[in-house]
């Protein structure tokens, strides 16, 4: 369970998060919507531990642990996964090698046995098949020369193999055509279960047609200004964000 209490954060002395309160129970998927500059990406970076974001107040507990005190790699080991809005290219680093190294780092930190190459490739190929991705995705360098859609799918592949208990999906739908969108959504839906929760950050309702959220929150001006069921997303689609900040 993720419990965010009165979280405030700034970048270079500019306040971006202005007192966020949010609880995501195990097994639930929550959507975060909101206009540009509302602090959606900042929230995902603060939760995953990126440098350059200063937490100025509040607390974040993840399964009872103080998430904000942990290094990014420790958060990954604890089960947090960030699907990047703009996945990063790693020249010369093979995708299979990268993911296997990550999987084993996380397994090791959790006190589980490491996976050998053969076992890993077997799982990776199965995941690729499940997600209808091209097999050569494993052989290429991490995100190098990938199309926008391929990069997003690669994030979902990593999520499938790392098996996080909390996924932060930062505008994973942006720049995707409808087929890619469905693949990404299938990936998230396949992970659904009592031990998986997710924060789906998105601008658009259309992703939520495929990933039906338990709750929808509207982030504006660095605060959650409205929360509701899946219908809230439809309402926003119809009326826009105008007037929400004042609400």
């Amino acid at each position: 369970m993720l419990e965010i209490k009165n979280l405030t954060a700034s970048i270079e002395d500019k306040t971006i998060l202005n007192g966020i309160d949010l609880v995501v129970p195990d097994g639930e998927i929550h959507a975060i919507m909101g206009p540009n500059g509302a602090g959606k990406s900042t929230l995902s970076y603060v939760l995953s531990g990126r440098e350059g974001y200063e937490v100025t107040g509040g607390s974040v507990l993840f399964n009872g642990q103080d998430l904000l005190a942990m290094e990014p790699e420790a958060r990954a080991a604890a089960g947090v996964f960030l699907a990047f809005q703009y996945p990063i290219e790693l020249p010369g680093v093979g995708n299979a090698n990268f993911i296997r190294t990550a999987v084993n780092a996380v397994r090791k930190a959790r006190g589980e046995a490491e996976m050998d190459t053969v076992a890993f490739l077997k799982e990776a190929r199965a995941a690729i098949k499940r997600l209808s991705m091209p097999e050569d995705m494993l052989k290429r360098n991490v995100n190098v020369g990938f199309s926008g859609g391929e990069k997003k799918r690669n994030e979902i592949l990593q999520m499938a193999l790392l098996q996080p208990s909390l996924a932060l999906l930062d505008e994973t739908d942006s720049g995707l055509d409808i087929d890619a969108l469905r693949i990404v959504a299938d990936g998230v839906n396949a992970a659904r279960g009592p031990n998986f929760s997710a924060l789906v950050i998105t601008h658009y309702q259309r992703l939520l047609d495929h990933i039906v959220p338990d709750r929808v929150h509207v982030l504006a001006g660095g605060r959650i200004v409205r929360s509701g069921g899946p219908d809230l997303a439809l309402e926003l689609e119809a009326h826009g964000y105008a007037g929400l900040e004042a609400a």
């Binding site: 995953s48 531990g49 990126r50 440098e51 350059g52 290094e71 990014p72 790699e73 958060r75 990954a76 080991a77 996964f81 960030l82 990047f84 996945p87 990063i88 290219e89 790693l90 020249p91 010369g92 680093v93 990268f98 993911i99 190294t101 990550a102 999987v103 780092a105 996380v106 930190a109 360098n141 990593q158 790392l162």
Partner: peptide, 30 residues
């Protein structure tokens, strides 16, 4: 080594040193 590359690796569970090692090996691949 760009900060975002380092963060990308760390967010996947790699320690800072392992991340640098991986990126350096990538740089030297040829």
């Amino acid at each position: 080594i760009a900060d975002d590359q380092l963060f990308y690796c760390r967010s996947r569970g790699l320690s800072e040193e392992d991340s640098v090692g991986l990126l350096v090996n990538g740089f030297c691949r040829e």
